[in-house]
């Protein structure tokens, strides 16, 4: 049965109904450290009572929904009284479902069941990073071109990632991927907020898009943050040496420079490209250049002609 966390108070009969179904119900009330305690209890479903002081209800729902690792959590809003749901509720408070206090036991339990199964169904995202995958990425790029948005498309990938996996194991490799995802998402988010987009092509390939005006700054920050954090994924001896020993494709010993991040940015001013395939072609050229630079680096394509 599920672990359900309830933020704010719930009527006694609702509590009894949920618990009699075999769910574990944990109450988090008061305002302090709500998020901390919420995370500490590893819930499957979160009930949030609408109308907690200081708009904490909205803030918590938004925080959960915007976090990569938490967005899959099903959030059910509980409205204190029956009546029309105010306009824009779901924009400012992107919950998954709701019920009114005083709803029948059957309804409440069904909604919770639905929330649990919905969580299980969310497979559209990359399972490792929970970022949108290829279809969303292509759609995003095409939208930039069609809507003539002055945005840049940035292709990110790791250098010497395969030998890293061989040397340190897949689990640790996966962690490097997740760290990279978090860094990109948060740098994009801080740089441009909702105007930005981050997707995970798969493996160690990512794509993000930001307005051309900030692409340089966001790339620089991603590279800086990555460089600061990637060191914690290497043993001290490898860090001191500046390289590590692994096997090449033929199984021979070879030395590899420490895993780094390369960003190839392609600005798409209106009219430069018509189709995302053209963007990808230019990106491949830029990538080749940036990969030849040592360590983590970015390069913004400065050619503006359509020929690429």
């Amino acid at each position: 049965m599920a672990r359900i966390v309830c933020i704010g108070s719930l009527p006694d009969d609702h509590i009894r109904a949920i618990e009699s179904r075999g769910h574990t119900l944990l109450h988090v009330s008061g305002e302090s450290d709500v998020l901390d305690r919420l995370l500490g209890s590893s819930p499957d479903v979160v009930l949030v009572r609408k109308g907690i002081p200081r708009s904490l209800d909205m803030r918590i729902v938004r925080t959960l929904k915007q976090d990569l690792n938490l967005s899959f959590l099903s959030v059910i809003l509980v409205f204190p009284s029956k009546g029309p749901v105010p306009d824009h509720t779901w924009e400012v408070c992107p919950a998954d479902d709701f019920f009114f206090e005083g709803a029948s036991t059957d309804e409440i339990l069904s909604r919770i069941d639905l929330a649990i199964s919905r969580t299980a169904r969310l497979v559209d995202l990359n399972p490792l990073t929970h970022l949108p995958g290829n279809t969303s990425i292509l759609r995003r790029i095409q939208r930039i071109l069609d809507a003539r948005l002055p945005h840049a498309v940035v292709y990110a990938d790791l250098d010497n990632f395969k030998p890293y996996n061989d040397r340190y194991g897949f689990t640790r490799g996966d962690e490097v991927i997740r760290m990279t995802a978090r860094i990109i998402v948060h740098c994009v988010d801080e740089g441009v907020g909702k105007e930005g987009f981050t997707g995970h092509v798969g493996g160690d390939d990512f794509v993000f898009t930001v307005p051309c005006s900030v692409v340089e700054g966001v790339c620089a920050q991603v590279v800086r943050e990555f460089s600061g954090l990637v060191t914690s994924f290497f043993d001290q001896s490898d860090l001191d040496a500046g390289y590590f020993v692994g096997l090449d494709r033929k199984g021979r010993k070879e030395t590899f420079l420490l895993t780094s991040l390369s960003l190839a940015a392609v600005p798409c001013p209106p009219g430069r490209f018509g189709h995302y395939g053209e963007v990808a072609a230019v990106a491949a050229q830029v990538k080749k250049k940036v990969k030849s630079l040592p360590g983590s680096a970015y390069l913004v394509d400065r050619r503006t002609s359509g020929s690429g």
Partner: peptide
């Protein structure tokens, strides 16, 4: 703190602040 912030994101930081006791 700076590493924690880039990994957690600004929204989490804001909520931490608003709910601090």
């Amino acid at each position: 703190v700076s590493n924690a912030i880039v990994l957690l994101g600004f929204d989490v930081i804001k909520t931490l602040v608003v709910t601090s006791s």
